[in-house]
Every structure is written in structure tokens, then in C-alpha cells.
Design a protein around this nucleic acid. Sequence first.
DNA 1: CTTAGCACTCTCGCCTCACGAGTGCTAACC
DNA 2: GGTTAGCACTCGTGAGGCGAGAGTGCTAAG
Lengths: 376, 376
Amino acid sequence: MSGPLTERRQTILKLVIQEFVDTATPVASETLVRKYRLPVSPATVRNDMAALEELGFLTHPHTSGGRIPTDAGYRFFVENLMERTSLSPAEQRMIRHQFYQVRGELDQWVQLACAVLARTAHNASVATAPRAEQLRFKSLELIAIHETMALAVMVFHGGIVKQQTLPIEPGRTPEDLRRAAGIVSDLLADTTLSRAEELAATATLNGIPLSDFERGLVDLVVRAMQAFEEQAQEQIYSDGLLEMLSQPEFLPASGRDDAERAIERMRRTLEILKSGRGLSPLIPQALASGGVQVIIGGEHGEDAMRDYSVILARYGVEGAIAGVLGVIGPTRMAYPRSISTVRYIASLMSNLLAELYNVNARPSDVATDTQDEQRA
Amino acid sequence: MSGPLTERRQTILKLVIQEFVDTATPVASETLVRKYRLPVSPATVRNDMAALEELGFLTHPHTSGGRIPTDAGYRFFVENLMERTSLSPAEQRMIRHQFYQVRGELDQWVQLACAVLARTAHNASVATAPRAEQLRFKSLELIAIHETMALAVMVFHGGIVKQQTLPIEPGRTPEDLRRAAGIVSDLLADTTLSRAEELAATATLNGIPLSDFERGLVDLVVRAMQAFEEQAQEQIYSDGLLEMLSQPEFLPASGRDDAERAIERMRRTLEILKSGRGLSPLIPQALASGGVQVIIGGEHGEDAMRDYSVILARYGVEGAIAGVLGVIGPTRMAYPRSISTVRYIASLMSNLLAELYNVNARPSDVATDTQDEQRA
DNA sequence: CTTAGCACTCTCGCCTCACGAGTGCTAACC
DNA sequence: GGTTAGCACTCGTGAGGCGAGAGTGCTAAG
């Protein structure tokens, strides 16, 4: 009964989605004909819509009132119907400029990426800090704050820095501290956690046993590395909550029933973003696969995410460091634009990191929007 | 006609506030009599309520339905009626424990303070990072990341650390970097911004002119200090949004009108927290005055804050470093508890910072809840 | 000054009803 | 067979009305 997915039906599906994304209200057959000057009558469109519904691409919230896409409908759109766009050169330039302004301050990159992502895609954004696949120690510096307190600055490969204060015995000179830090740096230079643990056990450098103080420093470093490693689930940064809540999904369209739902949705959204529940399972998946991943509505099985779509991309340097960033919003989302935004910012961040790692750096043309594949 | 503010009327005001804070619904005369076993009849209470209303301490949302406190009512409660409590020892212990777990990692203190504040006061929390009254440079370390990139770690008095990558010419040895950093550290040690700018202009150390590289480093430090100084309005951290949004104020009690308002309130709240609009003017005020400040509803004149109360306290070390932290929530707020929470965490943070500055440090009993005055 | 009694007011929830949008179906048309 | 016009039908939406209940304000008595 449902019939084949003819060319025209695909066009209609595409138009329904476009229209629904624009207006956030169910789209009627007549509207479609009128707005897009279709060369067929509303009745024909209705027939095709019925067929698309049987195929599982559209639904009917109510008997009257138009159609809205299903998750499967969006999926088909993303995979087959959508034209792949890029951000306009002007937007690309603006974004690059913002990153240029915080060049060097790598602790701000993730935050900035979130902010830009949210503003550009008009939805909430999420990102994890880039994480070295294998944390490797680089060096330790000790700086006296006063007689009994020092600041330890541990630097790891890839520009990862961790600072920590520690109490020291009074009477240690800066030279003292520097020498101790130097010894520890030499001992642990370029080691991974497991190797560092071994070296901490022997507690000798070139056969000379370490002093108590130096051993304490080694322990400090090892503990810091363990903390990094253990921190199993990534901290997820996010931004643009307000951006997302301006979407009509969160407006009390009509009736108090709707209003109540809107508020409930709001609260749940907040929970998702704050706790990362429903989001964190997606991270390792996105890390594993390259390209841009699109998860639409309940596809992933997580019930809390039923009404949301997530667009994630991995960024980083192959084999060295990687993180994930993306956009989250209602399933009714401007997929082409969101996807190109995510793709662009991921490649931008990758290039920034590559420069840091001195691989593949393209100093001037840092932000080429590489057309990587979009589905894993 | 209104009559004096007798003892009984004060009691009634207090009970109305307590009851309203508990239940979030307008409180009726009969409820009060029943629940608190008042030795008078509802009619008497009604008369007193009418008097309190004429005095400006209570209002009437509707003709029927009970009374709710006005801003002035809350104000009188906070200043005269409220008994000053402290957090229970168990809670104090729990909070201390959480801070103990991140001892040393001072970049996490503010975040933790926000989180604890929110969870304890069941409202949103805000905090600014501690800021030195006068930024003073301590030392610079340079760590090579690879041949053409180095990480500069600038340390300022009070444990403030700023990191920044910078490009370097290939061929510089670690020893090279160390020497250059040492020279710059010696040159700028303990200087404030203005002095640093002077020294940067002369560009000599002990009469010996600096190399180009060293001059570049000096510039880097000066720019970083300028950025600190210029950053006029403090970045405001916040947490506990979800906590606040669980308050009944943000539930669609009944009627779609209410629901719409709830959503609008939600959005506005988000804006306040994200942008700091309406909040930032309070910061310098709180920094200037010691003790705990309570701003109730529209008292401060900011319209956006009409429905919110803010409880702020300054924390830090006198004459050295200071920040602000506090709680924000609907005017219907458990003031005694919120105030004691803010007071406690502010004193805890102050002690932690004092330890860092080596003044007045009380190593074991770090968290005495000093009973400082509560109004500026 | 306090209290009992009572009329009055106003919200809330529920129901009904009419309207209109949009569909699904049937039958005619190309 | 695909397409179209016509039309009955469905259902959400909003307005209006109504009864119940809660709580007050007032008055008059204790």
C-alpha cells in the first residue's frame, strides 16, 4: 500500500523537514504547495504524505494539524536529502578571529569552542578538554610562595599543565627547590604513568637514592598522573543553554499541558547538560570514530535524550591527543548548518593542536574545512 | 489606623515568613493558628495581619487567599526577627572534608565553593575568583614543548598562575630558555604592573641590555598583567541552577498564566547568572564592606532582580586578596540557613587563602565560623 | 482588645460549545 | 494509474459559564 519512495516524495519529505525546522509547527499540505509553488495539488501532496507516514518518515501528532518528521525521517534527510554546506567565508573568518585572540592560552580553547559553537548553531554545545591518549610527563617546576609553601607546576606532553601547592619545610632556598625539581624532572622525563610508578618504587636516579623531599615530589607527580588516568568519565563543558532555551520547543505554545511539558523539558535538559547523563556514553563512541556523528532523538536508546539530537565530532591529533565537541538541541534542528559548524570548529581545533604538537601545521591556512565523511 | 508593631505582630510576621518559606503558598490566618497553636483566634490574627499590611510588611496577591511577605517584611525579618544560626557541626565537617580533598589545587576552590554553596543552601550560587588587590609578579618559567613552541608559566603573588604558549626560534636549548626566564624573573621580581611597565621600557638588567628574546618575554608578562588589570568586571562563576529551578517558584502551579511566567522567570534567571547583569554591580559593594550582605528583591533598584534575593560575603585576606561568594534565589528564601552557609564558606575560603599567604594560619582548626557582623 | 458570625470576593477546575484547520476518502478527470 | 476537486469528519483551541472552596473584611457582641 505504501508504495515506493519516489523522487517527488523525497522532495516532499525534504520540504516538510525544512518547513518544520523553520516554523516549529506541524506542516500542512496546502502550506507546502503554496510556499514552495509545487506543481501539484494539495491532495496529491496529502497522498504522498500518507505514503511517507506509512514508510515511517512522518507522523501525525493529531488527526487534524499537519505532519512532523519522525527520527527516521530526520535520519533519511541527513543521509540522503541534505545538501552539504559549509559555513560562509565571513563566518569562518569571524570564528578564526576569535580563536586568534586567545592564541597561546590553550586553557581557554575549549571554552571558546563551546561559546562559538552555541552562538553559531543556535543551540547548546558540549565539549571535552583534549586528552592525551597516553599521558606523558614532561617536567616539574617548583616555585616558593612563602617559607612553608610552594607551588608545583607539572607539565605534561601536549601542553597539559597541572598546578598544585604543597607544604615545604622552612629554610629551603629557591636553589634547593630548583635542584630537587630538576632531579625529579630528569628522573621522570617522558615517562608514562606505569613507568613513573616503577621509577617511584626504585627511588634512585643514576644509582643515587633520592632524598625524602624528592621522593615526596615523585609521589606528587605520580598521584597527579593517577588522578588524570582514573578520571574515567570526562568532564563535559557546555555552553549556550540560553541559546537552546530560546527555541520554540521551550515556549508554552498553548494550553497549560504544553507549558508544563516545556518546563519539564527545560529541567531535564539542564540535567543532561550538567550531569552528562545520556551524553557521556556518546563520548567514547565519538572519540573512536572519525568524522561527524549525528545521533537523532531516541536512536541511541537513551530515553532521556528522546527529544534531542546530538552532533558530535572528534578533534585532536591522530595518535596523540583528542577530544570531542558538538552541538545538542531538539531533534527539530537545522542539521546542515549544525553539522557544518561542528565540522568547521573541530577542524579548527585540530589544526590548533597540531601546531602545538608540531605536526602537519598549516600556519596561515589554519582553518581549512576538510570535507571528512560525516557518518562513521 | 495601622497601630504599633506589637510583640505579637512581630511574632505573626515571623511565622508568616517561616510558613511561606516552607510551603510557598500564601498563608491564611487559620492555618497559622492551627499550626503554631497560637493562643488567639484567627480573627485576631487577621486584624494583626491587616495592620502588618498597612505597615508594608505583608501583601495580598488576591482578595481571597492568604498573605505573603513584602520585601520590607523580609528585610525586617532578617534584621530583627531571625535567630542567627550556624550550620550543624556535621555539615561543617562534611564541607571541610570536601575542601580537604582538593587542598593544594587552588584553581578548584572557587568551583567547589559554588557547588557546596548551592547544595547546602538549595539555591544557585555565585562566586568570583580571588583577586589580588595589587597584582605582583613573582617568576616566570619557560618549558619547551617542541623545537618551535614553548610554554610560559607566569606565577604571581598569592598563587595566581597564568600559562601561555609562545613560538620560539628553533635551536634554543632548555638551558637557554631557563636562563632567559631567570633573567626576566630577576628583572621583574615582586613588581606591580606600573613598575613592570617602567622596567620594560628601560629593558636593562643591572645595566646590561636585554636580548630581543628577553624583551619579548618581558612584553609577554606585561601584557598578561595588563589583561588582568583591564578585566574590569570580574568573571562570575555560578552553580546550582538546577537546585534553584527545583524551587516551587519555577513550577507551573496552576493556570497557564502562571506557567508562562514560570518559564519567563526561568529564562531571566539564566540570563542573570550567565551574563551577570544585575549582579555585577553588587560585587564591588560586597568587596568593599565586610560581613555578609543581604539584598532582598528590588531593594537594589535593579528591575531584573525584583524577584530575587542575593546574599553575598567577601572572602580573602585583608589587604592582599579578596573575592566574593554568595547565594542567589527567589526572595522566598530560607534566610537564616543561607546566611549561615555563606558566612561559613566565606570564612573557610578566607582561612585557606590565609594559609597560602602565611598569615594568621590555623592549620588544624581551619574552619572556625567567626561570627562577623552580618550587615554592612 | 478579642472573638464569633457572616457576607463577599476571587481563584481554580471543569464543562460546554463553536470555530477552524487539516485530513482522509470518494469519485471524477486526464 | 496518477491526479484532482469536493466534502464529511476529527480534533485541538479558546472563550465563556458555573459551582465549590478558601479566606478575608466587617460588624457586633463579649
